[in-house]
Design a protein around this nucleic acid. Sequence first.
DNA 1: CCATCATATGACAGTGACTTCCATCTGCGG
DNA 2: CCGCAGATGGAAGTCACTGTCATATGATGG
Lengths: 214, 214
Amino acid sequence: MMVAVRTSATLLRMSTGPLPTLPLRERKRLRAMRNIQSVALELFDREGFDTVTVERIAELAEVSPSSIYRWFGTKEQLIIWDEYDPASLVAFQERLADTEPLEALREVVSLTMGAAFDDDAERIKLRLRLAFTNPSVEAASILQTHEMAQLIAGIIASYRDSDPSDLDIQVAAHGFVGALLGALRHWYASDFTTPIEDIIERPLAVIEQGAGLP
Amino acid sequence: MMVAVRTSATLLRMSTGPLPTLPLRERKRLRAMRNIQSVALELFDREGFDTVTVERIAELAEVSPSSIYRWFGTKEQLIIWDEYDPASLVAFQERLADTEPLEALREVVSLTMGAAFDDDAERIKLRLRLAFTNPSVEAASILQTHEMAQLIAGIIASYRDSDPSDLDIQVAAHGFVGALLGALRHWYASDFTTPIEDIIERPLAVIEQGAGLP
DNA sequence: CCATCATATGACAGTGACTTCCATCTGCGG
DNA sequence: CCGCAGATGGAAGTCACTGTCATATGATGG
């Protein structure tokens, strides 16, 4: 989440109905997960992340706690999880064939974050607010963005035919996601009034031209 | 830790004895904490972070688990905690009177990371390895660097007489610590063969001139 | 449409990090 | 040396998370 990237399939989707091609079992699980996340978000919003137990979410969503842990892994992922993340990753990797990494990143992130925000702005806001409000959720979010950085590092490395642990690449990848996280924090702090384009554009500009600070 | 910054007091210190000015009670607590951390690091190194329980660390260090939690807060902080961090922060803030923020950052971080590494290289290496190896410790480390970013953002903001949540400032601060974390990860991956100067210099260069990537 | 099989779910019993509370102890000032 | 404030240790409790296994349910071939 947070840096949620959506595939074109999502953009074409008009309603929130399930994709008809998926097996019945998968569809059921996704529907349950959507429901569980909704229940969890509402409870977290009303009573705070720490106060609400997973057991209570399970009761309200009418599933077993075991299933919640099997599907989401951790309590924090109830907020962080984004249904469309996997598909978005695929879309990003497809685009890499045509464009160079940073440009592909710009296009996909920009396009899909806008789409995600248009699609269900309130849910995105709530998730970001919860992420920046609670320390453990924040930690999980940050960790996730760092996994993204490692991913980007790997992609840039293969593009330049060098090693992912290369200093330049590490610094650029982590600098970017760090800056993106900072931009998202600003976005949240500004109550989402800053245009999305800026939120994407500035972190990329930092890598390309520097922050131009004092 | 990780971006450990040490005060000049530390640099002047020749042995590892306690500072004589501190009250007896504080000295005792610091001595206990040093010992607990040593015990913990050794156990984590030998048996893995998840396998070792806090209770067992408490037994070996001859303190109660209560005290460990009171002093360190979390199990992860047994690795992350750095005795000299608070004093280093003070040193950084003192230097801000003379120099502009980025330069002060460069000087203090460079000087003190070098000193820390010279002082007890093996301990630093071990802590970094544990931090980059175990997910929960990594999360805690990353969270700490983000607190550092917020701190830097605040300092730059007051220097430029603007708001800490300003987009430029947020992006620069988080970009820097993100890049620094990336550099540290590279440092660890290179088995600490990369010169420390580079580890500090590159992240700052990213902010000042960009990564110059593709 | 049904039997069979693979797989997913739910119930249960743990483990261990972390919190809270209180009795006890120990430096510290008079 | 005494009395006090604050620190420590001990015990009991909460809850996230993990394994295990019987049961249920969707997929598959007849």
